[in-house]
Amino acid sequence: MPSADRQDELKTLEAESIEIFREAISSQRKPVLMYSIGKDSSVLLHLAKKAFFPATPPFPLLHIDTTWKFRDMYAHRARMADSSGMDLIVHTNHAGLQAGVNPFTHGSSYYTDVMKTVALTQALDAAGFEIVFGGARRDEEKSRAKERVFSFRAGGHRWEPKAQRPELWNLYNTHIRNGESIRVFPLSNWTELDIWQYIAQENIPIVPLYFAEMRPVVKRNGAWIMVDDDRMPLLTSEEPELRRVRFRTLGCYPLSGAIESSASTVEEIIAETIRTRTSERQGRMIDNDQPGSMEKKKREGYF
């Protein structure tokens, strides 16, 4: 349990997030929650339930499925969709899939564009979603640190970082014209540590991959990549070895680097998070492609 002062800080963050959810819904535009199965999504879903209790949150969950998630993530997704009582929409860019786009042969940048960014815009356009909740936090990355809580998207889901709407106090401008949309980030002001302490305090279920365990991994580009299924092509020099590892962030398994760790409870993860000398996104392959790569992806509609 976090200390009493920490509990107060978490309570303030929780209250702010709930306020954001309720404000977004009052816009009367068509909402959806981007559910990526990770810890931030878990907290986001938990907060959504609180914001509308005892009603079920008035929007579906949307998962952009690249088909390359960890098996544990698919199992967790099924459990959460079931217990939340919310509809789950799963969307895959089938054209991309048929063209054989995958994280190994196409490189993380192109793969992410086709299977995530394009897939996301397809799913949003198909259903006409206008208010899109996401679990991004400002402490994750430099271009996120610049983003509004209610982040306006012009037609075609374009983000114009140089022309963001002013956002004063808690007075969010939710007005849009047809074809425009708003990405809403209720976790904007949370840090990684806040997320973990809140998960501990609220006992929020998360994917077991966050806890250290012996897992088959190979070392690639300096990161431990888990061999989650037999689709992963191994070089002749590569022999999966069992190591005690866990993940700080979860995405597509070929692109998620594990860290060696023995933290097997939330408390131990918190202690490790406080001690760590590396940022959470270090294990993510897509951010390091080129300078400003995250901003570029975001302009084009990536979360």
Partner: peptide, 22 residues
């Protein structure tokens, strides 16, 4: 450069939008 996170900002060496840091 830690704080000026947008490409335009780094290119022009100026701060355009507010950045939140923790």
């Amino acid at each position: 450069l830690m704080v000026d996170g947008l490409q335009a900002e780094r290119a022009q060496g100026i701060t355009i939008d507010v950045a939140y840091r923790f």
